[in-house]
Nucleic acid binder design. Structure first.
Length: 258
DNA sequence: ATGGCTGAGCTACTCAGA
């Protein structure tokens, strides 16, 4: 089973790119972030034509997450945390892989910049609430996949020039510590588990030729609970969609389960 | 090089993104 995660930076502006991607890569499930639209304007019909069901947690203009899936996703939840600002940032659901029931949690973590504003405290509080909910879930669910746009650069290797990001909400030590704490609950950052020293990115700014210069960062992740490690076949950052016309600033990350 | 690029929205500019 192939599961992809992609921050598309508006599903409607990106519709042709997303359709092309689905036709080529044929993921069983595609996790989308930053769809930037309400459910009523989500292009579900277009995806239905390709054989995908849409599960949408939308919001006008900003944020928004969704699953596109060839298989049925059960127990869809939009209230994984109680978000003070009522932003649409988490959608979760359950799938079956062989005989295992797996909970998939699709997240779009707040950016948090600039760090002197309430945007940063919102990010910190959001992450703390998220960790609390995950801890609670782990009491009776052992098979969990958390994927999406974390807006966290885990380590120095994960950004083109870490010295520029010391006081950035994506790389501040306080934020990275929360990421490590989440891993300590019993998850692995699968890309880094499999690629110990490889330097690849999932995001490149639109500005100042960042893509051409490979000034990127790895902020989109698949965290998989230790119980499921035996089921992982491969993980790939697929850079092709970032090179297309009218691209998202993020590129998909793809995991394959046995 | 605190510039520059992209999308959404009560179309002209502001906000948000990372």
């Amino acid at each position: 089973m192939k599961i992809s995660s992609w921050n598309v930076n508006s599903v409607r502006a990106r519709i042709n790119n997303v359709i092309d991607y689905i036709k080529i890569e044929k993921p069983d499930i595609l996790l989308l972030q930053e769809i930037k639209t309400e459910q009523i304007n989500f292009p579900s019909d277009e995806f239905k034509k390709l054989g995908y069901m849409s599960y949408v947690f939308g919001q006008k203009s900003y944020n928004g997450v969704a699953f596109l899936s060839k298989i049925k996703i059960d127990n869809i939840k939009l209230d994984f945390i109680n978000d003070d600002l009522k932003q649409s940032r988490i959608i979760s659901g359950d799938i079956k892989l062989n005989k295992k029931k797996i909970k998939i949690i699709n997240i779009y973590v707040p950016n948090g910049n600039p760090i002197t504003t309430d945007k940063y405290t919102y990010k910190i509080n959001w992450l703390k609430k998220f960790l609390k909910s995950i801890k609670k879930k782990l009491v009776d669910e052992k098979n969990i996949v958390i994927a999406g746009d974390f807006n966290i650069i885990p380590e120095e290797i994960d950004v083109y020039d870490h010295t520029k990001y010391m006081n950035d909400a994506l790389f501040k030590i306080e934020i990275r510590k929360i990421f490590r704490e989440l891993l300590n609950y019993g998850f692995k950052d699968i890309y880094r588990l499999i690629n110990k020293t490889k330097q690849e990115y999932t995001f490149w700014d639109y500005m100042a030729g960042s893509w051409q210069k490979n000034y990127g960062m790895r902020i989109d992740h698949f965290l998989v609970s230790d119980n499921l490690l035996e089921n992982i076949k491969s993980i790939v950052i697929n850079k092709k969609p970032r090179s297309k016309i009218k691209p998202s600033d993020h590129t998909p990350i793809e995991i394959e389960f046995i």
